[in-house]
């Protein structure tokens, strides 16, 4: 691989906002308000430990255990906390179940509120103006762009997250999955299916 050192006699200059963030970090660290090691720990957690795999486990369990599902729909926050999924941005989580009559879809029209303990950090499109504005105005069109076409008989309900309430969609269990274990089912649950912009994978 060619090495372009000769183009960069000095260290590569990061973009302006990156320098401003470094300035903030320096000021706040010197004042004792933040600890650089704690920052690394936070980044590592969201990059490697928390993500849609957590939500997928909850969905797979709800698909196989009717009592769990009932409890989840009644009080998601405490039920998922029992599984170890709690913490930042998960203070009040609500799970909404898809049915043949109603498809659910989640947005945060104001910024990007999202159930971090179950899904991690939201994808770029969830944070874009385009999605935030259009999910409410023309949900079927947005769904179609994600490759989701619903039967005419199904309504679409859009849930607007806030800093206080964060929603997770419980997708319908795909047909042809009767003999599957919870682990195998969890592998079918995509991030987008829990935001409502996708459907679970179908076993091949």
């Amino acid at each position: 691989m060619p090495h372009d050192d000769h183009d960069h006699p000095h260290a590569l200059l990061p973009p302006d906002p990156a320098l401003r963030v470094k300035a903030l970090e320096t000021i706040l660290t010197r004042k004792g308000l933040i600890d650089p090691a704690a920052l690394d720990e936070i980044i590592d957690t969201y990059q490697n430990k928390i993500g849609p795999q957590n939500g997928a486990r909850v969905v797979a369990k709800a698909w196989t255990d009717p009592d769990f599902k009932a409890a989840l729909l009644k009080d998601a926050t405490s039920v998922v906390a029992d599984l170890g999924y709690y913490g930042r941005q998960g203070e009040h989580m609500v799970v909404v179940a898809n049915t043949p009559e109603q498809h659910n879809m989640v947005v945060c029209t104001l910024c990007s509120c999202y159930p971090w303990p179950l899904l991690g950090i939201p994808p770029g499109w969830y944070k874009s103006d385009a999605y935030r504005a259009r999910a409410v105005r023309e949900p079927r069109k947005v769904l179609a762009e994600f490759g989701v076409t619903l039967p005419e008989t199904s309504s679409v309900r859009v849930w607007d997250s806030t800093a206080e309430v964060r929603y997770l969609v419980l997708p319908m269990r795909p047909s042809g999955t009767d003999g599957l274990t919870e682990d195998e089912l969890a592998a079918l649950v995509t991030r987008d299916s829990m935001i409502g912009t996708g459907l679970p994978k179908v076993p091949s």
Partner: peptide, 20 residues
């Protein structure tokens, strides 16, 4: 999860200050 390192840094600084 984060497209640029500075996105992750500013996110982490904010979370840390919130927790503090």
């Amino acid at each position: 999860v984060f497209a640029e390192p500075w996105h992750a840094q500013v996110f982490a600084v904010t979370v840390a200050l919130n927790e503090a």
